[in-house]
Design a protein around this nucleic acid. Sequence first.
DNA 1: GTCCATGCAAACTGTTTGCACGCGC
DNA 2: GCGCGTGCAAACAGTTTGCATGGAC
Lengths: 152, 152
Amino acid sequence: MVRPNTNLKETFHAAGRRLTSQRRLILRVLEESDGHLDVETVHRRAKRQNAEISLATVYRALAVLKEIGLVREHRLGEEHAHYEAANDHPHYHFTCLGCGQVIEFDTPLIDRVIQSVHERHRAQILDVHLHLSGYCEQCQRSNNGGSYNDET
Amino acid sequence: MVRPNTNLKETFHAAGRRLTSQRRLILRVLEESDGHLDVETVHRRAKRQNAEISLATVYRALAVLKEIGLVREHRLGEEHAHYEAANDHPHYHFTCLGCGQVIEFDTPLIDRVIQSVHERHRAQILDVHLHLSGYCEQCQRSNNGGSYNDET
DNA sequence: GTCCATGCAAACTGTTTGCACGCGC
DNA sequence: GCGCGTGCAAACAGTTTGCATGGAC
């Protein structure tokens, strides 16, 4: 579901939060990206528009956006957190240990997992994290170390 | 599969590692626990047997044990890493956001997820992390903050 | 005896927080 | 104008590392 900007302010207000330029900027950075940005990258890209924005603000904004439900947090690999805009349907991730690329996928099977855990343990499931890792097609042939490049 | 201690030394040797008292101790701590210990807890329990053992050694030992395949690492919740002995079959986790308890479960559906990702993207899947969170049966009724107690 | 593993403390990284100022509402 | 949000820097927590000593093999 795509959320028209018109409602953004209301979304914040409903959560007792204010819509600031920084928060809007950070959300835009995530929406314009291919997803899975780590905090440092979000900060770097946000500074292109607002050189003054601080890392602490990025952390705080991401926490608020996550709380409101506009942003999702993932722990890919073992490393630090990654974030993406929550515009679209839920999905899961595969990380290539060779080149670092992340492949998104979705599967209806997870709903059945949730259903079965719910039935067996009577637990209420609110969040799901499924993360696969291994080697992508290319890295299987040429088992190079791979490169994880990003702009500066 | 249970691994007889007789082979332990060979397992280490095959990986070019030495079997030290500290590493054996840390492995025993994990095997005797109910699983999902964080590093601090492993250290605390290991010190009961060997008051001298350092936190750095615990970190290094866990890394080696994980590399050798005797121990599995999990990132439950958003927090720090948890470890468990890899004696038994793979399984997955549900964490209650109320009381912090962890429920283990297994499901054949994950194999099908792996299979489907493998077929669709030709990726070689080496590791799977599935983590659910929400509220357990008790915490759904009494939505208390819950308590997360552990020995000292 | 060789060399990896350990203990200690210091360094590092990602994240959080206290405080004074600024801006959304 | 009130009060939350921001920027800055300092504080923190978890984890890693350099170095001299000790123990596995």
